[in-house]
Design a protein around this nucleic acid. Structure first.
Lengths: 190, 190
DNA sequence: TCGCACATGTAACGTGTTACATGATTCA
DNA sequence: TGAATCATGTAACACGTTACATGTGCGA
């Protein structure tokens, strides 16, 4: 449960929280993960990471201790608190909204990737089913827009719309495949 | 030519500039366009639009006059200046970068759509060729990442990567089709 | 008369970006 | 000796979001 009165973390905050669920780490370690892994879309700049860690700390979602293993170069190592684990799980289990698929596709894929930490196939299926529903919905709207397009206009805007349609079609196909993957595993999860 | 010392407009600024090239409009009119058309991803909130118009004005990229057609309800109507037209064209003709395809796909599609205003098939071809090159480049990286993935990991992150790959594949296919469209028109443009 | 569309703005707030600051350790 | 890496942070800045403020004209 997130304690009331603290604003919800941003996507960057949840990404950090998720990484800390895989292994407690220092700010510098987290920066390296962002700089090298496919999460590279998210900034690894210290001006983003350290304040975000500070906010998570103040919200009591993570806690830190100073690691003096090598005495002269101490690192501050962060780990999630129980409240942080709760907030993280709640974030993962959030229903997929129309706004998410319209504007926050990257966030959605991040959330999906972190379902690996949750290890709850039913939540993953719910996520994928919701994702597919919203994508198909939006796709319908886009296609209706294309049909309603005034003819005899320059081709560029229509082509730009078409690009979007094809990207969302690819997402829908992906979701159907992924859903089959997790349907197949239904009932026989460790 | 953009006068030196004024910072470059944001994407929202260029979007406004582009719309004003189609027809001079008031802030309210522009807001409606954002609220109703497929540009809906960009915010139509007054707190974004009006300050952006103010910045464009200060940079002398647009100018405004007060329309008193119906006297008691005046509107401030904006139109691009010659400098604004120059900046807009320069924005459209900018080469597509790796960073653009990685993180600013929406901006790219907006730019592509506004090529309709430019009406220069060679610029459009250059844009599409650059776009295709960078997308294929990035796709190569993503696919190498997938191959290098440590086996025996939970499937979620790999599937998230796969989703990205398929979206970019769709973009590459789209670009090839669009490029053929403009190649076909080569030489016989009005 | 009520509420909606027209029309333009400002203020507070949070966040990310860029750039800077600091200092130790390791390796060529 | 000097550069790169380890490690943590701060400050200035611009931007978008949300919410608020203000007032007219028009149709039900």
């Amino acid at each position: 449960m997130v304690s009331i009165m603290t604003p919800a973390p941003t996507t960057l905050g949840f990404a950090l929280l998720g990484l800390l669920h895989q292994a407690p780490q220092s700010g510098y370690g987290l920066r390296k993960v962002f700089a090298t892994s496919a999460l590279g879309n998210y900034s690894s700049s210290p001006g983003a990471i350290y304040p975000a860690l500070g906010r998570l700390s103040r919200a009591r979602l993570i806690e830190s201790r100073v690691d003096r293993a090598r005495a002269l170069r101490p690192r501050r190592v962060y780990r999630p608190t129980p409240a942080g684990t709760g907030a993280f799980r709640a974030w993962l289990a959030q229903p997929v909204t129309r706004g998410d698929v319209e504007r926050r596709m990257d966030d959605l894929m991040l959330r999906f990737a972190f379902h690996a930490n949750l290890d709850s196939p039913s939540d993953t299926r719910r996520f994928l089913a919701g994702f597919l529903r919203e994508v198909e919905d939006y796709l319908g709207d886009l296609q209706r827009q294309r049909l309603a397009w005034p003819p005899r206009m320059p081709p560029h805007p229509r082509l730009a719309l078409q690009a979007g349609i094809e990207r969302y079609r690819a997402s829908a196909r992906w979701a159907r495949t992924a859903l089959r993957h997790f349907e197949a595993r239904r009932g026989r999860t460790r």
